[in-house]
Write a protein that binds this DNA or RNA. Structure first.
Length: 427
RNA sequence: GUGGGCGUAGCUUAGCGGCUUAAAGCGUUGCUCUGUGGCAGCAAAGAUCGCCGGUUCAAAUCCGGUCGCCCACCCCA
């Protein structure tokens, strides 16, 4: 009856195989160190959230919500989604757990998988990992600058070169609507020269025309009014301060007057960090974020100023891999135990436990009987010493220590071997 | 949703103007070396050539369809 079924990961989703784990671990470790330094605390939120959470926060006319959410319905009829981003869940948790009663600001970080239903391509998947930093309950522009600095630091720490930080301010509800009007009237007079997509955007989301890649649109955009010239007084001052802080920290950035972000909840500062790749193969931005002073209010909480961002882990790995950066193999075993014969095998099992108690990693191949095959594995694993235990050694109560670098062998009493290895590894 | 490229052993690929045991390298396992690795030689295992259908005496090879992957647009991390 059966045709041969071939199972594979769903479109746009991937196994993270053992050989790639080191990259994830490296990034996790780096993020955690930096989070600790800046006193961010880790938060994990559920993979599923109520769909409404994102409809309210991210915005109904954004691509994420319009077509990129994995939705499902519970038996009870609740609409849930696989989270497409991390900021709204963090804001939800802030409100739900009354974090406004904690000393402010509340600084949180996360590193987790997210989901968007879209066509996969370079640096873009349906399940992807992001780490993020969020500061809630603080209006000061110093935090905007610090958030940017933190993402920059993580990427720097991971040895990524040619980083370009782009910043802009998109104003707030006091000034953005006015700017939008100016922008629309500017584009309307030149509507015929815009691409088809942009003519559509003119009605739905005029700000998006600003980062259209079409040549002819770019030319028109180049002369478009810039939002920074139309910020209200508070937004203007805030942005000026952010830039001053960045200058003070010596962080290189570009003012990108036409940088806008896709999500509805952003206000004032927005930023992106990209890699200006040498080989011309850009894979989108590595990190992005901004201030979102309206988000908690949109979610039904008290108005809480906040700023944060997120970075794409797979994209970072893609870049790290281009440089053959070797991570140190600290956690690899340095001892291999080879055994010959049944009684040796028994002793060997016990010996492994003794090493474990001393915190020394050992490797074995209990299923293999030939010494040759065992040494071959020891060699492949690049261990420093191989312990050889055969029938003769068991009878004499001794064991052979073979130095894999030079092939020198010494014999020691079986009960002394753990101490001896400990001594040798210390050197 | 639209357009382009590709689908042959675990991996990387050859074969693709049709003729039958589908090839190689890497990797895996074993032997040469019956208690000693890194080299070498030899051997084995491993593929219904993505799937379905058509043309044909004969198809991995031609045609049609379908699925999947990759890349691009859109948008973003």
């Amino acid at each position: 009856m059966s045709k041969k079924l071939k199972f594979q990961t769903p479109t746009g989703m991937h196994d993270i195989l053992p050989e790639d784990q080191k990259y994830f671990e490296k990034i996790q470790d780096t993020v955690k160190d930096i989070a600790d330094f800046y006193h961010f605390q880790k938060i994990d939120t559920p993979i599923l959230e109520q769909a409404e959470l994102f409809l309210r926060s991210v915005g109904t006319s954004t691509d994420i919500v319009e077509k990129q959410m994995f939705m499902l319905r519970t038996k009870g009829g609740d609409a849930l989604v696989l989270r497409p981003e991390g900021t709204a869940p963090v804001a939800r948790a802030y409100i739900e757990h009354g974090m406004m009663n904690l000393p402010q600001p509340v600084k949180l970080w996360y590193s987790a998988p997210f989901f968007r239903y879209e066509h996969p391509q370079a640096g873009r998947f349906r399940q992807f990992w992001q780490f993020g930093f969020e500061v809630l309950g603080e209006i000061s522009s110093a935090l905007d600058a610090q958030i940017i600095q933190i993402f920059y630091n993580v990427l720097k720490e991971l040895k990524i070169k040619n980083l370009a930080v782009q910043v802009n301010s998109i104003g707030d509800s006091a000034c953005r609507p006015y700017y939008k009007k100016i922008l629309v009237s500017y584009f309307k007079t030149r509507g015929n020269s815009l691409c088809a997509d942009c003519r559509r955007r003119l009605k739905e989301n005029p700000l998006r025309i600003l980062d259209c890649k079409e040549e002819k649109c770019q030319r028109i955009v180049a002369g478009a009014p810039q939002i920074i010239d139309h910020l209200c007084e508070p937004c203007h001052r805030h942005f000026k301060e952010v830039l001053e802080f960045l200058d003070e920290m010596g962080l290189p950035y570009h003012l990108s007057p036409y940088l806008v972000r896709g999500l509805d909840y952003y206000t004032k500062t927005v930023f992106e960090i990209i890699e200006e790749s040498v080989d011309g193969k850009a894979i989108g931005s590595l990190a992005g974020g901004g201030r979102y002073d309206n988000l908690t209010k949109l979610l039904g909480g008290k108005e809480t100023p906040a700023v944060g961002g997120a970075a794409g882990i797979e994209r970072i790995i893609e870049i790290i891999k281009k440089e053959p950066l070797k991570f140190s193999r600290i956690n690899l075993p340095q001892i291999f135990i080879a055994q010959l014969g049944t009684s040796a095998k028994r002793k060997c099992l016990k010996l492994i436990e003794e090493f474990r108690e001393e915190g020394i990693q050992v490797l074995e191949s209990l299923g293999r009987d030939s010494l040759k095959a065992q040494l071959k594995i020891a060699d492949k694993e690049e261990v420093l010493y191989t312990l050889i235990l055969g029938q003769q050694e068991v009878l004499a109560g001794i064991i052979i220590i073979r130095d894999m670098k030079n092939g020198k062998q010494d014999t020691v009493k079986l009960e002394r071997v753990v101490a001896e290895i400990k001594k040798r590894l210390r050197k």
